[in-house]
Design a protein around this nucleic acid. Sequence first.
DNA 1: ATAGTGACTTTAC
DNA 2: GGTAAAGCCACTA
Length: 127
Amino acid sequence: MARRIQSKAGPKTRRKAPVSRAEAMQDERVQRVLATVDAIPKGKVASYGQVAEEAGLPRSARFVGSVLGRFVAKRGVPWHRVLGSDGTIRVQGGIARDQARLLRAEGVTVTNGRVKLRECGWDPDAD
DNA sequence: ATAGTGACTTTAC
DNA sequence: GGTAAAGCCACTA
């Protein structure tokens, strides 16, 4: 039967963050992503999909990238530790070089825009 | 509500 | 080992 009223405050209902500006619109998803990225140990790297899954947002790898590009620049989040599923740097432009430089500064070997996940891949369970 | 877009991933060749 | 196409989820216009 027609449930006309779909509890607008359901636990799974996404909020539109009625707060004012985008700067203040820190959705819980965004916060979870940033927190997860921040949890990546120095010298280790994780994929966008891995971060998404750890943040409780399975299959939302693209969202992770979106969040990083939009919010990370102004925070102290180690965005450079997030790579493609195969360990390659997905970001394009000059920041790609910065990412490689930041990774190398942490002792991560970057060869031809790629990192060996076998060595530097982050295992949240092990950490 | 529909369509376009992307710092992704997986599968197929 | 590569590139190409489809699938995917959430955001934006």
